[in-house]
Nucleic acid binder design. Sequence first.
DNA 1: CAGACCATGTAAAACGTTACATGATTCG
DNA 2: CGAATCATGTAACGTTTTACATGGTCTG
Lengths: 187, 187
Amino acid sequence: MALRHAVLAALLDGEYSGYQLAKIFDVSLSNFWYAVPQQLYAELAKLEREGLISGRQVIQRDRPNKRLFTVTDAGLAELATFAATPSKPSSIREDLLVMVQAVDRLDPAPVIAQLEERAVTAAAKVEIFDRMLQRLRGDLDEETFLREGDRIGPYLTCLRGRRFEQENRDWCDQAAALLRARAPLSG
Amino acid sequence: MALRHAVLAALLDGEYSGYQLAKIFDVSLSNFWYAVPQQLYAELAKLEREGLISGRQVIQRDRPNKRLFTVTDAGLAELATFAATPSKPSSIREDLLVMVQAVDRLDPAPVIAQLEERAVTAAAKVEIFDRMLQRLRGDLDEETFLREGDRIGPYLTCLRGRRFEQENRDWCDQAAALLRARAPLSG
DNA sequence: CAGACCATGTAAAACGTTACATGATTCG
DNA sequence: CGAATCATGTAACGTTTTACATGGTCTG
């Protein structure tokens, strides 16, 4: 029961449709939770049935109509309960790490290739996060924004995402370089 | 179908029982994958049925008997296929981040408390990882080990785990301090 | 003698992923 | 005119989590 809280948290930013939420929760760049569109449509329906969010139809001329959702008082209360419940750390589950764990007993070439690829995509994500951070803090510098800005929640999660991808990039680079140096004939 | 590969990768280190694997895959400190014991027993049975691992009974006097498993040639081939298959990055799904995302609209006190707690457990994990790294590299220094040691796979994944927890700690500390400074009456 | 550790499982429920399904509009 | 974007779902399948179940030894 965690997606529900992630959806509620996302809707604190303002009204969103399922489709818009799907972009926020996209694999490629979710700074606090990840989910595919199908999950979101299902969860939104459920949350509305339970009265934690309420939707309103928006008729559009040029595009298909959509439904925008906002958090109700009951939804906010649900979030408060969630925030007061002790949470367990989510643990590592990453295919690429499994491959690296086994790399000594396998042909390292495909693993090296994937590490190098991942380093590039991680670097790209770092840049996207940087732009997101800039947009969030407006014309304030980071220190000032964090001290005085409103809504620092999204900024903080974005910072975490940025650092994670930076570490990811550095580690992938290091691992790829090392494996390459040790197996100069492959790759 | 990824747990199977994680189990195979873990068994490259040597023979293990389900119980021993459970400790390697434990929530509190898995450097490349996480799984609960029940998953492991089920997966081991499946892998054995498919001939990717083979188990042998070990009779013990003082303790319950156990079964130790090793990877077969077919298992190694399966791992090789896996390593050559492009992998998708695993994305963020962390309750604590959801709470921080929403913190501006909630009572920050319980969130701050959780951040501070998490910082402590993350710091503890960093130390455990440091000891694991020391053990893995023996009396070599890191640079030498990474250049010349055998089985650097586990070392690299451990390094990744360490850095992740370090970042986690730093971020939790920063976020907690900031939220505390902004809401001096709570917590 | 209580609690932790060793050791292995079954079963049900919850959750997440993948495939399928539809249809309009805008951009190159 | 094909691809991308907007917009919303259903159904089947696979994976993970949680609860239940058992029983011996070792440590304080």
